[in-house]
Structures are given as C-alpha cells and as structure tokens.
Simulated assay, not measured.
Amino acid sequence: MQKLIVTLIALLLCTGIKAQIWVSKTVNASFFSSTPLEDIDAQSKTGASAINVKTNEIIFKINNSSFQFKKKLMQEHFNENYMESDKYPTSDFKGKIVEQVDLTKPGTYTVTVKGNLQIHGVSKEYQTKASLIVANDEIKASSAFNVKLADHGIKIPTIVFKQIAETIQVKMTATYQPKK
C-alpha cells in the first residue's frame, strides 16, 4: 500500500510545478451488476488516490484482487476468469477536474472529472460527475459511473451471460488529507 501511495504522488509531482498534493489511503470502490438471475456486488477498501489541488489532476489505483464478494466462488471467478488479476493486478484512473475549482477553500463542489480508466489492460476515456466536500482540512470525494465490460476486453462466457450484466455500476469514495 505504501508503495502505491508513493507511486501516485510521484506521478503527480512530475508536472514540474511545486504541487500541493492531497492523498487518500481510504479509497472505497464498489461495483454492482444486476440481472434477472443474480446480483453481483463487490467492495474494495484498499485503493489509493491523490489530487494535485493546484492543477486539479487526480489519480486512483486499486488492486483488483482486493475486491471482496459475498460469495467466495464469485471472487475466485472474478480474479481468475474475468479480471485475470495475475496478469492485470491493478486498475487505475488518471484524469483532471475539468472546472477551475479552488480546493483550498471550504465548500461543496459538483465537478466533472475527465480522464482515462485502465481496467484489464485496456484504457478508455471517461467523463463523469463527482461531488467534492472541502471542510476541516480534508476533501471528501464521491462519484458513480457505468462501465461496459466489453470496452475493457472483459469477455462473458455464453454459459453465464444471463448472470452477469454487460454494464456495471462503479462507485468510488475517498477522503483526502494534505501530504505532509
């Protein structure tokens, strides 16, 4: 986890500007797939993220094998058959808050985040809304968006096609503190 945080900060510092970096070691990521036959949901609480409040750059990184399922067999199939977590151990997002927002000032901001989401070794551009609450020397962020599995090269075998939705809903929350 520490290595993940250091990597994220290093990526944001490469902008050449003396950055004001805020980090989160408490990223919660979840996804939900609903079909008439079965609902699938999983959560990870081990992701990491960083925001450069001067440039509005943002990055998230999550270990794919950290997602926990209610059914262990689903978790096994997720890691071995769909995400191929041994081959693609992480998923990440690198992007920017589109609007010019002063994240050093308290307030609640609805922003647009645009960037590339890399899942299963395939990167695709996404744009979504996010909520940012700046208060008490922290930033709380949350967002929800949909991901088409086919867009990231994740194939669903025909035998289980009716059990896994083609599009899943992803939710992310994070609490950031200034990097000291």
Rank of each mutant, 00 (worst) to 15 (best):
T104D: 06
T112R: 15
D137S: 14
I97K: 07
N116C: 10
D86A: 12
I154T: 02
A150F: 11
Q118F: 13
K114W: 00
K96D: 02
F93I: 02
Y126W: 09
N136Y: 10
A135Y: 10
D102N: 12
A135K: 15
K140F: 09
K140H: 10
S131I: 12
L132K: 10
A135Q: 15
L117R: 09
K96V: 00
P89E: 03
N79E: 00
E76A: 12
A141D: 07
E99W: 05
Y88E: 00
N79C: 00
S85Y: 00
G153C: 00
I133N: 14
P89N: 06
H120A: 07
V111H: 03
Q118M: 14
N136C: 03
V111A: 03
I133L: 12
V98K: 15
I139M: 01
D86P: 06
V111K: 03
F78N: 06
G107T: 02
V147F: 09
L132D: 01
V98Y: 11
S131C: 09
N79I: 03
V122C: 05
V101F: 01
K70H: 12
Q127V: 04
F93L: 08
A130F: 01
V98S: 13
T128G: 13
T104E: 06
S143D: 06
G95C: 06
S85I: 00
Y82E: 04
A130Y: 05
K148W: 10
S85K: 03
L132M: 14
L73A: 10
N116T: 07
E76Q: 13
F145W: 05
L117I: 02
